[in-house]
């Protein structure tokens, strides 16, 4: 019977290539609904940024996925495994890192990692090798025998990240991993996360600092008031909202005298709209065309005698998309 269920799950995974699958998730607290009917699917290898203002339900979603809080209802599948039916199996594929990670202050760095290697059922023989490897990866080898209480905030976060990755999980749930870190520690964390992302893991990461996510997210899910506003790959969302990015043009002289002429000239071109001046010599316009069409436009403007110094297509990043879509009420 169990074999049948497992083989059914494998089949389902092959056909339905989602590493994280959430259906109708609802999380309630005493007087508020933190997550309301959330449906989200993250394919294998995607790095999905979960963004939204404070109280949007990001942490509750991640906690429900990690099995820390009990949702009111909803189906969660990790790596094709139903969380409710095969909890331990699902947790084996998960790595969870909270925003303000509690740690065992009185343990040494290697002891801390060894404890969690045991918690993730890694064989005793392989435990120390795995601990040593991850200490090297997060640059904590020098602190091997230091007590956790003596580590800086940045080091602690790196330690917790190492703990999260010890058992080589296929899915990572990172809740504001860089929160409370100084700029240097934040940069270190970003480099580390990028390295991990390159290893093909599926990551769901929540963050307030949207520029952090811009660098390596391949998909985003925007939440507001417990609901999902939009989700999908960044490319998909750009297409869906009909905005590819901005065309930024800088001239060798002031835009002022050329502006009316420029506006009439550009507005005749397909894929271009809302021309807007940025600086004295710079302006931008929304461009929905492809690269070839941009090249053609450049050629045309040069032919018309426009003194162009800079001409580039700036694609919308996570931050731009969030401000375009996310910062509104769900209603």
């Amino acid at each position: 019977m169990i074999n049948q269920i497992v083989s059914f799950q494998l089949l389902e995974l092959l056909y339905n290539n989602h590493m994280i699958s959430i259906r109708s998730l609802r999380v309630d607290y005493e007087d508020i609904t933190a997550v309301d009917d959330l449906n989200l699917e993250i394919p294998v290898g995607y790095i999905c940024g979960l963004v939204g203002p404070n109280g949007a339900g990001k942490t509750s979603t991640i906690k429900a996925l990690a099995g820390i809080i009990q949702p009111t209802y909803g189906e969660i599948k990790i790596n094709g495994t139903d969380f409710e039916l095969f909890r331990e199996q699902a947790l084996q594929s998960l790595g969870y890192m909270p925003d303000f990670s509690p740690v065992y202050e009185n343990l040494k760095v290697w002891e801390f990692l060894d404890v969690f290697a045991a918690a993730y059922l890694i064989d005793r023989g392989k435990r120390l090798d795995r601990v040593e490897y991850w200490m090297r990866r997060v640059n904590l080898t020098d602190k091997r025998n230091s007590y956790v209480r003596d580590l800086s905030r940045g080091m602690r976060q790196r330690l917790v990240l190492a703990k999260t990755l010890l058992h080589d999980p296929k899915v990572l749930l990172l809740d504001e991993p860089a929160s409370g870190l100084d700029p240097i520690a934040r940069k270190e964390m970003r480099i580390l996360l990028k390295e991990v992302a390159q290893e093909g893991k599926t990551i769901l990461i929540s963050s307030h600092i949207l520029t952090e996510l811009s660098d390596f997210c391949t998909a985003i899910a925007i939440m507001e008031k417990g609901r999902l506003v939009v989700s999908g790959s960044i490319e998909e969302i750009r297409t869906r909202i009909g905005i590819k990015g901005h065309l930024v043009i800088r001239l060798s002289e002031s835009v002022e005298k050329n502006m009316p002429w420029l506006r009439s000239c550009l507005e005749q071109v397909e894929h271009v709209n809302s021309v807007e001046q940025i600086n004295a010599d710079e302006f931008k316009c929304v461009f929905t065309g492809q690269a070839q069409e941009a090249a053609f436009l450049l050629k045309e403007l040069v032919q018309k005698g426009l003194p162009i110094l800079n001409f580039y297509l700036k694609e919308d990043n996570v931050e731009d998309i969030f401000f375009k879509i996310g910062a509104k009420d769900v209603s």
Binding site: A66, G67, I68, Q89, L91, Q92, P98, P102, A118, A119
Partner: peptide
């Protein structure tokens, strides 16, 4: 919470 999120029985 870390132990809750681990597969330890």
């Amino acid at each position: 919470d870390f132990h809750r999120a681990s597969p330890t029985p």
